[in-house]
Simulated assay, not measured.
Amino acid sequence: MKAVLGLEDGTIIRGTGFGAEGIVSGELVFTTQYTGYEEALTDPSYKGQILMFTYPLIGNYGVSGNCFESDGVKAEALVVREACPEPSNHLSKRNIFKLMEDEGKPGIAGVDTRMLTIKTREHGTMRAALVNGSNDGEEAVRIAREQPSISDIDLISKVTCPEPYTIKSEFRNADDPVNVVLVDLGRKLSIERSLLARGIDVTVVPATASPSLIGSYDPDLLFFSNGPGDPQQATDAVSAVKHFMGELPIVGICLGHQVISRALGADTYKLKFGHRGANQPVKDLESGIVHITSQNHGFAVDEDSLEETEVAVTQLNANDRTVEGIAHKYLDMFSVQYHPDAHPGPLDTEGIFFNKVLKLAGGKK
């Protein structure tokens, strides 16, 4: 199938299309992970984005469905150097071509992803459009330029759960259960799994949940998840943090980290090309230990804006010194920018983070 990728700067890339035929637009972003394409494609944080892998071969171990982080592919499209048609894995049920076809998502292969990655690093993320079934590059560029900025799109509403639901942990203490309310800004399922594995009951509520709805579940702790887009769009979540701070322990991951920071008086800003991959070094400022982490975000907390707040920076990215963790100086509130739940990526911080969550919620480590 003919396919063409157009960028807002006028770049036109032609390749071989696969998956669904049609036209999609989004912000072109790259991830440096070698494996974990199932997890990445189904991560709701990629909503509104066209996902490009820097690793040249994608799909070689097929698609099992066991590693999904949501109910399906959330990235708008897939860009790869080479897509493997014949995977080798006894767990595989279909190849990457069939996955994208089944999900109604387009992909393009035969692309010089190294050139596009270098271009993105130099010029920053750009709006893009992928047209499967055509070679009209000028049309792809026009569509790319006409789409709104990702900061102007409410992506959270497209991935949050429609109704609240509760999952009881099989490891729960029936005599003294611990309940966490997870505000779904576009959560990865691995966050739920990490909480449930520690005996914590999880009640998931939509991103627009009111304080009265959240409070009706009598939570021991309030948790704000990851999600897509600009944290300035998460106004309801910011209001919920302000309502419950000082009343409940509050924690967050990724977009949840940015939401908590904004509620505490910090500003956020868009990174040039973001952090997406499974090898980002994060230095803990108290212990001095550098952890290797999984990350997927295009926005960050402005460290200078924290100076007049009651917030302390606890962790920094060892590459560019962006804020990776914060904690309130007096209240039970902390958050991290990276994904301690990983999937894909290293689990270096999974136990540290979620055991601390359990302790704050009143459970036993």
Rank of each mutant, 00 (worst) to 15 (best):
R172M: 08
R172W: 02
A174W: 11
A174D: 13
A174Q: 13
P177N: 09
V178P: 00
V178M: 01
V178R: 04
V181P: 12
L182H: 10
L182V: 14
V183P: 09
L185C: 09
L185H: 04
G186I: 13
R187K: 14
L189F: 15
L189I: 12
L189W: 15
S190P: 02
S190L: 13
S190M: 12
I191W: 00
I191R: 00
R193N: 09
S194G: 09
S194Q: 14
L195Y: 05
L196E: 10
L196A: 04
G199N: 10
G199A: 02
D201F: 09
V202F: 07
V202M: 11
T203S: 10
T203N: 10
V204K: 13
V205I: 08
P206R: 02
T208Q: 08
A209C: 08
A209P: 00
S210P: 07
S212G: 03
I214W: 00
G215W: 01
D218Y: 15
D218L: 14
D220P: 01
L221N: 04
L221F: 14
L222N: 05
L222F: 00
L222R: 00
F224V: 05
F224P: 03
S225I: 06
S225E: 04
S225K: 06
S225P: 08
N226K: 04
G227E: 01
D230H: 02
P231W: 07
P231A: 07
Q232G: 15
Q232K: 15
Q232R: 15
Q233C: 13
A237H: 07
V238S: 00
S239Q: 12
A240I: 01
F244C: 07
M245I: 10
M245S: 06
I250E: 06
I250A: 09
V251A: 02
V251C: 03
G252N: 11
I253A: 08
C254G: 01
C254V: 00
G256R: 09
Q258K: 00
I260K: 03
I260T: 03
S261G: 09
R262N: 02
R262D: 02
R262L: 14
L264T: 05
G265H: 06
G265L: 10
G265I: 07
G265S: 08
